[in-house]
Design a protein around this nucleic acid. Sequence first.
DNA 1: GTCCTACGTCAAGGATGTTGACGTAGCCTG
DNA 2: CAGGCTACGTCAACATCCTTGACGTAGGAC
Lengths: 234, 234
Amino acid sequence: MSERVVSEPQRRRRRPTKQGVVLSHELIVHTALRLVGQHGAEALTVRRLGAALGADPSAVYRYFQSADDLLLAIAEELIARAQDGWRATGDWRADLRDIGLRLHACYQAHPQAALLAAHRTTGRVHEIAAVEAILGVLRTAGFPDPEAVRIYHAFIDQSLGFAVLDAAALALPAVAHSADLRAWNASYARLDAAANPHIAATVHLLAADMRHSGYPYALDLLLDAAAARLAATR
Amino acid sequence: MSERVVSEPQRRRRRPTKQGVVLSHELIVHTALRLVGQHGAEALTVRRLGAALGADPSAVYRYFQSADDLLLAIAEELIARAQDGWRATGDWRADLRDIGLRLHACYQAHPQAALLAAHRTTGRVHEIAAVEAILGVLRTAGFPDPEAVRIYHAFIDQSLGFAVLDAAALALPAVAHSADLRAWNASYARLDAAANPHIAATVHLLAADMRHSGYPYALDLLLDAAAARLAATR
DNA sequence: GTCCTACGTCAAGGATGTTGACGTAGCCTG
DNA sequence: CAGGCTACGTCAACATCCTTGACGTAGGAC
């Protein structure tokens, strides 16, 4: 397989397409994000991307090895946006909470893309920077290395897991989405109270709580437990 | 669109296929699950399912409206299996831990289906039973209703979030999957230690830890924090 | 200018889900 | 046990997907 893709810094010929667009790595990623944001996750196909760019679909393969490679680039872009502007304050708990909420908010802003990309390990610069930042916060706070690694793992996967779940809810077609919400108000409220006493006793609380993401609360629980373990090691 | 699908109880003619197989709703779901389990993630296509059944692929459409409809049926099956045999012991912490690990294991066993189904609110019998069981454990343990609902929400979404994330890793095409794993061993190990001191100091721990799911540890953190809050309310 | 080659384009191959038409084989009725 | 109705398995076809080899043009280097 001869090299079809040329790495970005070595690119020299910037030939416009038939429709006059000058392609670039960056333009393709941004166009893909816009495409997904506007027309949903299933709109991200090489053919549609080509059409949106104003180029032959196969031109994308001059910039990315495969559709999967493009997905990784999108994942990187999302991570980069989440990290943009973050600074450590010295308060490990506030710092982790900030990182978590930023990640979550960023994926929520692009739910369809998040759905596709949140579960990929890119191994690229921005992801590495995020790993370094989180580990740094934990180790500086005084967590022993094995504990720091475990908490890092739990923290990042919890954040991404909630991001995927909440993104999936946002990415649902409006009809199905409101149907999901109605389920808590209608279907669950109509259950037999004798057969499901605990649901019956809390259905009003449930209906209110399930309308929001459970992530902030779950994040606080994780930070609580981490703080307790830190205190115990001293 | 005339009705191509006949609901299961009304089915009468059980004509064998050319290869002598008598199809049924149940057989198709089970075969689909087996297909995913044996031949990995990308094996679940209508055409391959037809071949595995010993029938024309389009015969599946006599039993399910669409591939998505089939996936929902598979999801039902998964929920049922996760719950099968669970009993409350009276130890709220052990009970919740058991439910969480069962859910996670069940979705892990069928990643392809989990990936597409874990974020849907079905409102069917097995889902309702799970909600009732979890709420029951929490309320019986003595959590006040508002706290019980919040913890339920965090618990179930954390479980499903990790399930999706871990399932996605398993459901990845083999090439992309091994690339993800290699990232930790190769790419991260080769980083500049000066630029990423925290990664450099823990890379061996990271490589070992990231090979497994972070869910059990995250689950313990959540249960720790919940126990602390319960103690505080007394 | 002139050459080289990067890269946009074309065409094709083999996947995918899905549907309309067709005819046979299974059940029901008598 | 004959006849008919129709459920349902099959076939063929469509539109779409990703991907790749071949081709030729146009942009940059000198």
